[in-house]
Amino acid sequence: MSLTDEIDRLTKLPGRSWFADGLGELSAGGIFLVLGCLFILQETVEHPLLRIASAALIVAAPLLIRRLHEKLKERLVYPRGGYVRQRAVAKGRRLGFMILCPLILLMVIVCYRVGSLDTTLLAAGLFTALLLGSEARRSGTSRLYLLAPLAVLLAITIAILQVDELLNLGLFFAGYGLIMLASGAYALRAYWRAAPPQESAEDA
């Protein structure tokens, strides 16, 4: 490996470390599972609080996932592999997200209003896939390249089954949540095997 290749490799390591241990998938998977259960519950129990809870969780999900991810890292990873905080996302990428996220949310709302919930389901699958694909590209985590298309596949499969309205969304979020939990657990197990606990955390 040339010196320039080695430098490139080293500069990518902090970004990869964010996803290397699988805690990102565990965090997101947990939130997805809860959201899925809320949607499924709404099928059997008609209560406005459930709708409010689902909507609130969708809005708060990015923040919740990030906070959960950080807390899990503090407990499970930093004592073993050390602590690193990636550089803030580049301005262009942030701007891209600021434009893209409301557009997709608007698309989902329009689909819900105008079309059937199946379209909303497909939009949810596509949005999840785009997000994961973007993170895969940024971090170089190959596992995410596999997870991204699975979101679309699952959404299409459930849409074809035509189970029921809210149940479709519930099955997607709960199902994909389980997939992410499995992926995250597998990655965390591999990480723990490769990174035993440190005898002493510190330093000279």
């Binding site: 970004g15 470390s17 930093y78 592999g81 602590y83 690193v84 905080r85 990636q86 550089r87 955390a201």
Partner: peptide
Amino acid sequence: AAEEADFVY
């Protein structure tokens, strides 16, 4: 590539 990193990392 990092905002900060600790000694262990």
